[in-house]
């Protein structure tokens, strides 16, 4: 059963140095506050997994929390590059970053395999591209029924998955709606899981298109209103597009970024605007 905890206690309990950690949320419901808490608790040597490492992973990478990144698209959506990610890949700053690079279809299927208790997934993907030449977790496989050559990718089973959702009840059942990305797959694929929510309520009212993760499939729930900012939680907040643009300036310069990290570590509420 999910235990309702504070964000700091949940991160302290679940996230350890050297872990494989997946923060998911596809533009929507990104657990940014949890990422800040990992920076605050100075976790090191993490293998970070995420389809779209955007601002939150730029922050974790720049703060030196990661040794490896497994991903499929690393940019600042609608703005441009991730400067901390680029600095780590191109110059090894603040520490070298190993990368394992996939496509979205490959990453989504890796989570599905992880959630399904399978060692790998099969897809029609990557054919003709240079990705299999640089990523050793992409292999051809022959269909035993038709003889057709397809592509196999291994399951992802993170040590910890962290996602954000709209709400949970007091028993720890989690409810989310809107664009749900690979949140469910990431939680079910992971050994341990944390869901940050906008609010904890007495009763979960049904929502059209809503999805429920039962309490027994989640380890910790932490109430963190606005915990997805500058991403958003449909029904609670809007995407803060100005913050994404402002992040470009903060992240471009190492000194300015380090001042930002100090503000996170000191517990100041960080807003770019």
């Amino acid at each position: 059963m999910a235990e309702i905890a504070s964000l700091s206690a949940a991160v302290a309990d679940l996230v350890r140095d050297g872990d494989v950690v997946a923060l998911e949320g596809f533009t929507h419901l990104i657990p940014v506050a949890a990422g800040h808490e990992i920076i605050r608790q100075r976790r090191r040597e993490l293998t970070l997994v995420r389809m779209t490492p955007d601002i939150v992973y730029d922050q974790l990478i720049g703060a030196g929390c990661a040794r490896k990144l497994i991903f499929s698209w690393g940019g600042n959506p609608g703005v441009g590059s991730l400067h901390r990610f680029r600095d780590a890949v191109q110059h090894g700053w603040p520490v070298p970053l190993e990368i394992e690079e996939h496509s979205h279809a490959g990453m989504a299927n890796r989570y599905v395999a992880g959630a399904s208790g399978l060692p790998f997934a099969v897809l029609r993907g990557y054919v003709g591209t240079d990705l299999p030449n640089v990523t050793d977790t992409i292999k051809p496989i022959t269909c035993p029924f038709t003889g057709e050559t397809l592509t196999a990718v291994p399951a992802i089973n993170p040590d910890v998955a962290i996602v954000h959702a709209q709400r949970a009840d007091r028993a720890g059942n989690v409810q989310m709606w809107g664009l749900v990305g690979v949140q469910k797959e990431a939680v079910l694929a992971a050994r341990r899981s944390l869901v940050t929510v906008e609010e904890v309520v007495d009763e979960l009212e049904p929502v059209p298109g809503g999805m429920v993760l039962p309490s027994w499939a989640v380890d910790r729930v932490a109430e963190v209103p606005g915990g997805a900012h500058p991403s958003y939680a449909q029904g609670y907040s809007e995407r803060d597009n100005a913050y994404y643009a402002a992040w470009d300036t903060i992240s471009r310069d190492r000194d300015e970024f380090e001042r930002w990290v100090e503000r996170v570590r000191s517990g100041e509420v960080v807003r770019a605007s």
Binding site: F26, H28, N109, V112, G178, L179, V182, E185, E238, Y244
Partner: peptide
């Protein structure tokens, strides 16, 4: 501004998970 702005989900015929998309 992004591939996942709220307006895209709010005005969609169907909203689905990412594995299903692909």
């Amino acid at each position: 501004a992004s591939i996942g702005d709220g307006i895209l989900a709010e005005t969609a015929d169907a909203v689905i998970g990412v594995p299903e998309v692909f």
